[in-house]
């Protein structure tokens, strides 16, 4: 791949060019470069070429330690990921998947990877072994530890239509949280910001579900680039409660950037969504780790 050359000028097509994207200071809060099937190290190397080609300033890898289905089981690649995180703090960060079915073990993983390691937060994944959603009391000790560490909390949510009779959320996986699970958890920790990941996939419902919970932010990666989604999110939540994710490689940066570029926003609002909101959220833990970031 010719990593940096654009044959035609994106501006001609009503798109920002590379320099303009860099000026937005895009932080990808949902980076899956370390795919947990196959060789995650080589996948990450391949994925980073697209990160740089598209002008992404920083990625936050969400596949650190174990695998998404078994986040608490160490894997052979873990040491290599840790080393990469430690050596590339200028553009590469990580959050660790945890499993609320096993809260003590999850907290121990936070000690190992956040308190005594390079990571900056935790991720609730889409489903888990024991079917524990994020509103369950098991989660309290996990969030208390996250508060102590200033760790970012990202919660995968989705609203899948299905079941018998068909209803919203009826096809969710066991333990896969819905946006209204996040708001229940948020009520118990009103001073902690929680990120409602993927906007529930079904953004029209997900946005409304979290609207009145001021300490719940929205991230909207991983779903199709439906027109109007970010417009509605800004109208209902304001531009200060939205963060951006890329979800590559299963999603293209094209898909995720387009959602914001298509919305009727000021450049200031775009900068907030593309990165500034996340930087504000994560600055305390970057400070703790001695990593200087400019909000």
């Amino acid at each position: 791949m010719n990593e940096h050359k654009f044959e035609f000028d994106p501006k001609q097509y009503g798109l920002p060019d590379l320099e303009q994207i860099k000026e937005y200071r895009v932080w990808d809060s949902h980076y899956h470069g370390y795919l947990t099937s196959g060789d995650p190290i080589s996948y990450n190397d391949k994925m980073l070429k697209y990160v740089h080609r598209m002008g992404i300033e920083r990625v936050i890898s969400v596949d650190i330690g174990g695998t998404l289905p078994r986040p608490l089981e160490p894997k052979p690649y873990d040491d290599e990921k840790r080393k990469f995180l430690e050596e590339n703090t200028d553009y590469f960060s990580g959050i660790i998947p945890i499993d609320p079915g096993f809260p003590e073990e999850s907290v121990q993983k936070m000690v190992d990877w956040i308190e005594n390691g390079p990571c900056i937060g935790i991720k609730y994944v889409g489903g888990n072994q024991l079917g524990i959603t994020c509103d369950h009391p098991n989660n309290d000790m996990i969030i208390e530890k996250a508060i102590e560490l200033d760790a970012v909390v990202y919660i995968h949510t989705w609203i899948k239509t299905g079941g018998e009779p068909r209803h919203i959320g009826g096809a969710n996986l066991s333990g896969e949280s819905l946006p209204w699970h996040v708001t229940k958890l948020a009520e118990r920790f009103p001073d902690k910001i929680l990120i409602c990941g993927h906007a529930g996939g079904d953004w029209e419902l997900g946005i409304r579900a979290i609207r009145s919970s001021e300490n719940v932010f929205m991230e909207f990666a991983g779903a199709d680039p439906q027109s109007g989604g970010v417009d509605m999110a800004v109208n209902e939540l304001g531009a200060d409660r939205i963060v951006w994710g890329g979800h590559g490689p299963s999603r293209s940066f094209a898909t995720e950037l387009a959602k914001v570029l298509e919305a009727d926003l000021t450049d200031e609002e775009r900068m907030k969504i593309f990165g500034r909101n996340y930087r504000k959220l994560a600055k305390p833990i970057f400070d703790k780790k001695g990593i200087k970031i400019k909000v």
């Binding site: 097509y13 009503g14 680039p225 439906q226 027109s227 094209a254 387009a258 959602k259």
Partner: peptide, 8 residues
């Protein structure tokens, strides 16, 4: 869809 997606 947002047409920007296909363009990008």
């Amino acid at each position: 869809f947002a047409v920007e997606s296909a363009l990008l």
